[in-house]
Design a protein around this nucleic acid. Sequence first.
DNA 1: CCCTGATTCGC
DNA 2: GCGAATCAGG
Length: 216
Amino acid sequence: MSWTDERVETLKRMWAEGQSASQIAKELGGVTRNAVIGKVHRLGLSNRVGGTAGKEEEEEVVETPVAAPAAPDPVASRPEPAKPAAPVAEPVVTRAEPAPRPAAERPAAAPAASAGNVTPLPLRKAIVPAGQPLPPQPSANEISPEALAKVGEVEKRARKLTLMELTERTCKWPIGDPATDDFWFCGLPSQPGKPYCDAHVGVAFQPMSARRDRRR
DNA sequence: CCCTGATTCGC
DNA sequence: GCGAATCAGG
């Protein structure tokens, strides 16, 4: 693979969007993240300290002076790196399997959720009608007590990751109510090839037999 | 361990 | 110019 104009362009765009080198490499295909990083440097794009490697002593604040009037350029306006609306790399929360229903173990609202995260805005968590914010459940939603206990335990140690923090190796089991700020993803190490951690795999994939057994 | 970017250096 | 290997940090 060579760095064609198009590929370089993609590289530039994604890098500017704050994508990681590995993500860019994955998108481009045929290159490793090392290649991407190498190219980035050769292009002189080395910028944002993407979260690590904070070597170098940056003492020179050689940035452009203040001078940033109100109305910027009418042309080059790309201040929104949020959603390229282009080829979506990955939906992150891949659930090609039976949608999980973490309804069973609803954690009573956890007020002190995010540490030091004081909502500055009048953010109420009651966009929900009343009582039961969660959608109806699939019907037979009986899970073995063992599995439930396991989940209950595990969720106390959940890493409480945000959507953005999920990777292929983190449990994507949602916890809490998406309609409120009392919501996060388990985030514990997922089983190889599975979207969830051990405990959540246990409740997500029910053999649909066993249950009957224990019931009658 | 997983991940990140930075740098080096033989090709 | 390229990128694997290595380094360095979270």
